Simulated assay, not measured.
Amino acid sequence: MKHAEQVTFGGSGMNRAAHIRADQAALEAALHHPDAACVLLWRGKPLMRGEALALVPMNHPVLAQPLGRAIEAPVLLGLEASGAPNFACDISGWEPEGQDASTVGAFHDPSEQHHPDFPPDHLFTELRRVMWQLSPRDAELAATAKAIVNWHGSHRFCAACGVASAVSHAGWQRTCPACGTHHFPRTDPVVIMLITHGNSVLMGRSPAWPEGMYSLLAGFVEPGETLEAAVRREVFEESGVRVGRVDYLASQPWPFPASLMFGCRGEALSREITIDPVEIEDAQWVSREDMMAVFAGTHATIKPARKGAIAHFILHNWLADTLD
């Protein structure tokens, strides 16, 4: 795909500095680097300043407060070309008094939270709302920080023996002190597919989505399954449509909570649709002309996939004839 690495959360070429993760002296030097900064997260929401990440100095007073973090130690995200290190830090235990937190974690979270130790324009914001506005570097930092903190929050105990595990390798590993098992960050593979038949594309919607929103069909890859097989299986399970040829297009890290989306395209062998109501609420064929109206915001009933999501990215390139 011509523009594959222009997808949101990809393409900034961040130096992840894996070579110093196990070097305690190098990590200490990184933490005390004069330009060291962190992506600050509160319950999965990054601290933003307008359309940019608000990178916080590692000596900021908020980082010294006992705020019930999902992970106590900062996670090394990588190094800038200047040598300045970036970290991920979590303050999920902070309670925003008098501020709306009722929608936190929801698919659509319009709320923003202000911590009193920061200026008024520094707000914790749902990443899905602002991801399309971020620079490539800010997007990669935010996605990496959110995914790794999510993982630590849900993998605190050894899966082999049940004992509480300890953070190691700058946050990129957890080690069991009892049985010695090493645990590494998990990424779940997901296929999301542009299924076409002639001049139309197959679109579906989940009942949890905003009214009128449709997107490409998607599903998790199962153990022992190829991407191509997963595409054919998921499309048939959800819509009853059989798929022939399948090609890979692009990938996108998707930290909601920790997936890697494999964008594919497939050729439908028929147009008959029989949905599985447990999987999706509706599916329909949408012509290229109608999809152009959807993207223009003038379609009577269909709203587009969220900006920044790989579904929006693939559909945009399909309309622009830039998939090849």
Rank of each mutant, 00 (worst) to 15 (best):
Lys2Tyr: 08
Ala29Thr: 13
Arg242Ala: 14
Thr181Trp: 09
Pro46Gly: 08
Ala159Thr: 15
Ala178His: 13
Asp321Tyr: 09
Met203Ser: 09
Leu202Val: 05
Trp132Phe: 09
His3Gly: 00
Gly266Glu: 03
Leu55Ile: 05
Val56Tyr: 02
Ala147Asn: 04
Gln99Asp: 11
Pro119Gly: 15
His115Asn: 10
Asp324Leu: 07
Ala218Leu: 11
Trp172Ala: 10
Leu134Ala: 07
Ser200Leu: 04
Trp151Arg: 05
Ala106Tyr: 12
Leu55Gly: 02
Gly308Val: 10
Glu289Thr: 14
His60Gln: 08
Ala54Thr: 05
Tyr214Phe: 13
Leu319Phe: 11
Ala101Gln: 14
Gly204Asp: 07
Ile310Ser: 03
Val241Ile: 08
Gly11Lys: 03
Asp90Cys: 06
Ala145Phe: 00
Leu141Asn: 05
Asp138Ala: 05
Gly240Tyr: 01
Thr144Arg: 05
Pro210Ser: 00
Ala29Asp: 10
Gln113Val: 11
Phe236Glu: 10
Ala26Ile: 11
Arg128Lys: 13
Thr226Ser: 12
Pro85Gly: 06
Thr125Asn: 03
Ile195Thr: 09
Asp23Leu: 00
Val167Gln: 12
Glu112Tyr: 01
Gly105Ile: 08
Gln133Ala: 12
Gly198Thr: 13
Pro119Ser: 15
Thr274Met: 02
Val243Asn: 02
Gly244Leu: 06
His122Asn: 08
Leu269Met: 13
Ala70His: 07
Glu225Met: 06
Ile314Asn: 02
Gly244Lys: 05
Trp209Asn: 12
Ala145Tyr: 00
Ala164Ser: 15
Ile195Val: 15
Arg49Cys: 10
Phe313Cys: 03
Gly11Asp: 04
Glu272Thr: 12
Gln284Pro: 01
Val221Pro: 07
Ala250Trp: 06
Ala81Gly: 00
Phe256Leu: 13
Ala139Gln: 03
Gln173Phe: 07
Val39Ile: 12
His182Asp: 10
Asp117Val: 09
Leu40Met: 12
Thr301Lys: 11
Ile71Ala: 13
His32Lys: 15
Phe262Gln: 04
Pro34Gly: 11
Leu319Cys: 08
His155Ala: 04
Phe220Pro: 09
Thr226Gln: 04
Leu127Pro: 01
Leu67Arg: 12
Phe313Gln: 01
Tyr214Gly: 01
Leu315Asp: 05
Thr226His: 06
Glu140Ile: 05
Glu97Thr: 07
Glu140Cys: 02
His3Pro: 00
Trp254Tyr: 14
Asp324Gln: 12
Arg49Gln: 13
Gln173Leu: 09
Asn150His: 15
Ala143Asp: 06
Trp132Ile: 00
Ser259Leu: 15
Tyr214Ala: 04
Glu238Met: 11
Ile275Cys: 04
Pro189Cys: 11
Pro277Asn: 03
Gln65Ser: 10
Leu47Thr: 07
Cys161Thr: 06
Leu55Arg: 04
Leu323Val: 03
Asp117Ala: 15
Ala309Lys: 09
Gly162Asn: 07
Lys2Met: 03
Glu222Met: 02
Leu47Met: 08
Ser82Asn: 12
Pro110Asn: 08
Val104Arg: 00
Pro57Thr: 11
Trp209Ser: 07
Ile302Ala: 05
Ser82Arg: 11
Pro110Thr: 07
Pro74His: 07
Trp285Tyr: 06
Gln133Ile: 01
Val149Ser: 00
Asp276Ile: 00
Trp42Pro: 10
Trp318Lys: 04
Pro120Glu: 09
Leu227Ala: 02
Ala229Met: 13
Cys161Leu: 02
Ala159Phe: 11
